[in-house]
Amino acid sequence: MAERWPGFKVIERDDRYAVWQGRLQPLQRYYTVRIGYRVPLAIEAFSLLQVQPRVQVVDPVLEHHSDYEEGPIPHVYMNRDEPRLPYLCLFDAYNREWTPSDLLAATTVPWSSRYLFFYEGWLAMKTWRGGGRHPTREERNGIATDKAIAAV
């Protein structure tokens, strides 16, 4: 992480948990981004939805636009504790596009920058042009659950 993303620093850490914070500049504007991640234990049964890295845009906070396509904020998971700081939905957990064996530096960080790039496009065009999908009803109802996998 430090090698590829020198602007990111660890701001919180314990045995299996760390939080990084740094600045991303997809085009011209800078965004402060926070990434929290807890490495699951080998014996834990978990779903990717639960263990995925939690990415938040701290500054400037993401704008709400209910009248824009995919609004009020496109492709985020709600955050009940801090509604202003939702989590970015950067991959399809149902299809295992990310697993704990992936490096955050090779996936989560560039995907966050990609998200912010299209977020700027969303602000400029009022339409989301970054692609993506929403969970199907089956996925939402847990009939087709995201894959429970063994930890690495």
Binding site: P74, H75, R80, R114, G132, R133, R140
Partner: peptide, 17 residues
């Protein structure tokens, strides 16, 4: 530079506890 593999933007739900 870093090249990132493709992924799908999802969303619309809460992350399960």
């Amino acid at each position: 530079s870093t090249v990132a593999r493709a992924s799908t933007n999802m969303g619309g739900v809460c992350i399960p506890d």
